[in-house]
Write a protein that binds this DNA or RNA. Structure first.
Lengths: 195, 195
DNA sequence: CCTACCGATCGGTAGG
DNA sequence: CCTACCGATCGGTAGG
């Protein structure tokens, strides 16, 4: 069930340092020698844990991707209104996003350096996730809870805004995902215009 | 006044190909040999036009940055209401964004590979631009045109959403910036909720 | 703009 | 997990 239990402490440490390094310099510019130094071992020794540099990136990207996918499961099987579902989905999204922010950053910016078949698997999961959000919004439009000209554009706009929060949040806000989710819900539900 | 007139056709060509290459592979992974091949010359010959790989990135990033800065000038010196100003600012932003989309993509994703002092200059321009949007919104809140709990969060959320449009727009939408700007204005002005 | 090349550094491996 | 190393490739340069 919880497949992270199989990851050794050393691999956890390596991936944590790798996430920081990949975020700071970008995946391509980060070197295995940089990473080894952060971990405190020699560069060649990394290959007793991973068969390639890319496999480290794969672990980081797919762990986060699965986190996002799992976060919608419970919401979709509830009896909540679409408005409540969308609120919950936004909150869950921000929670996953703000947990291990460095890994999230790599997930968001460096996934394009994956090679096939990982690249296409990843792209598929992204599209699936987007469609699950879209589905909530379309149902809400159909039953009159929501009013929006173009559900698809609303969905991608919402997800864009949610995903970018890491770029401007300060440290205290990162620790309070529900607070920031609430403010974003307010913006996307009400808009800015008076009356 | 128009300082692009000084750029030779060859440099224009090189930067156009560079934008495509940097976008596809990322700045670090893209090589001068790749670029030379796309242009149709030898790798060493690129250095008769540019003193370094980074200087090509600098040209792309700062040309786009100046484009965004300039686009707000006229709006700020108008007599329009804040609501009209914000609408115009959003339209101008999308126009600049959708012109030469490959250069925009590099501007958005690869600027972090600039070195100082270019890096800090770039960051400062970004912050200035954000503050000019924020100023319009704060004035609109003060005079009752807008209602929003946290003007700063609204500003960065809006800009995040605008900047991400390139990731999901199709080709026909890219050619119609005002149409897509209108849909985004609707979302951020009215929100999604019924009543 | 090309030819010919440089020093440095990269991801990865063999053998222990 | 280390030592010692490889083939490849990189950004950049000298001289024409």
């Amino acid at each position: 069930m919880d497949n992270q239990i199989k990851v050794s402490p050393r691999k956890k440490q390596i991936e944590r340092e790798a996430a920081e390094l990949f975020m700071q310099r970008g995946y391509t510019a980060a070197t295995m020698r940089d990473l080894a130094q952060k971990v405190g071992i020699e560069a060649g020794s990394l290959y007793s844990h991973y068969k390639s540099k890319e496999s480290i990136l794969q672990n980081i990207c797919f762990r986060k991707a699965h986190g996002f996918m799992k976060s919608l499961d419970e919401i979709e099987h509830s009896n909540d209104s679409m408005q409540i579902r969308l609120e919950k989905a936004i909150k869950s999204h921000i929670q996953v996003l703000l947990k291990d922010p460095k890994e999230t950053s790599v997930f968001q910016l460096e996934w394009k350096h994956l090679s096939d078949p990982y690249l296409s698997d990843f792209a598929e999961m992204r599209k699936d996730y987007e469609n699950r959000f879209l589905s909530i919004i379309e149902k809400g439009v159909k039953n009159g809870e929501f009013s929006v000209e173009d559900p698809y554009i609303f969905t991608v706009t919402l997800l864009s805004a949610l995903n970018n929060t890491l770029q401007w949040l300060n440290k205290s806000e990162v620790k309070n995902p529900d607070l920031i989710a609430g403010k974003l819900i307010d913006i996307f539900f009400q808009g800015i215009k008076t009356k």
